[in-house]
Amino acid sequence: MVSDSQRRLIILTEGHTEPVTGKTATCVVRYRPEQVVALLDSTQAGKTAQELLNVGGDIPIVGSLEDAPQANVLMLGIAPSGGKIPAPWRSIILAAIRRGMDVISGLHEFLCSDAEFVSAAAEKGVQLIDVRKNNERDVANRIDIREDCLRVHTVGQDCSVGKMLVSLELSNAMKARGIQSKFIATGQTGILVEGDGCPIDCVVADFLSGAVEKMILAHQHNDVLFIEGQGSISHPRYSAVTLGLLHGCLPQAMILCYEVGRKHVYGMEGFPLKPLDQLLRVYETMANLAVPSRVIGVAMNSRKVSAEETEKERERVRQELGLPVCDVIRHGPDELLEPIQAMLGEK
Rank of each mutant, 00 (worst) to 15 (best):
E18H: 08
L192Y: 00
K133P: 02
E116R: 13
G267N: 08
V2S: 06
L280Y: 01
K274F: 11
I184K: 01
G82P: 07
L256A: 04
E14M: 09
G322M: 11
I59P: 02
P80V: 09
S160N: 12
G248N: 03
F226P: 00
D148K: 00
I85H: 05
Y238L: 13
D4A: 14
C198H: 01
I11V: 13
L168M: 13
G197L: 01
G46I: 09
H16E: 14
S3N: 11
G100R: 11
P19I: 06
G187D: 04
F226D: 02
D67G: 03
K347S: 13
L336H: 01
Q50Y: 07
E116G: 12
G229N: 06
A120N: 12
N301D: 05
R98Q: 15
N135F: 12
I129C: 08
V126R: 02
L289E: 14
M254T: 05
M343E: 11
K304I: 08
L52M: 11
S91G: 11
E213P: 02
G267D: 09
K133I: 08
G15I: 09
R177H: 14
G244P: 04
S234N: 13
K175V: 06
P339M: 10
D144M: 00
G190A: 07
G345N: 14
I200E: 02
D334H: 12
G56F: 01
R146Q: 13
G82R: 08
V139D: 04
L344H: 01
V62I: 14
V73I: 10
E320R: 13
P272T: 11
A176L: 12
G162S: 05
E51F: 04
P236R: 12
D138I: 09
K23G: 02
I296L: 07
T26A: 12
H16Q: 14
L243E: 09
S171N: 09
E147G: 07
K274S: 14
K312Q: 14
K263I: 09
L256P: 03
T13N: 03
H235D: 11
V161F: 04
C112Y: 08
D130M: 07
K312A: 13
D138Y: 07
Q70T: 15
M215P: 00
K274G: 07
I85A: 07
Q230E: 12
T154C: 06
V298K: 00
L111M: 11
G261M: 07
V203L: 02
K163S: 04
F271Y: 15
V212K: 01
G187E: 03
S119W: 10
S302F: 03
R318A: 09
E284F: 06
R99T: 07
M343Y: 07
P272S: 15
A240K: 10
C159W: 00
V298G: 05
A122I: 10
S64C: 11
T189G: 05
M286R: 10
E147H: 10
M343K: 12
E169Y: 03
T24A: 10
D277C: 11
G162W: 00
K133N: 13
P272C: 12
E228T: 00
D67S: 15
M254D: 00
S234W: 08
G56I: 03
I184R: 01
D201A: 08
N222L: 02
P80W: 03
C27P: 03
T43A: 13
T154L: 01
R303P: 00
G229T: 04
T310D: 09
A307Q: 14
N288P: 08
E315R: 15
V155W: 04
I233T: 05
E18G: 06
I233W: 01
S119A: 15
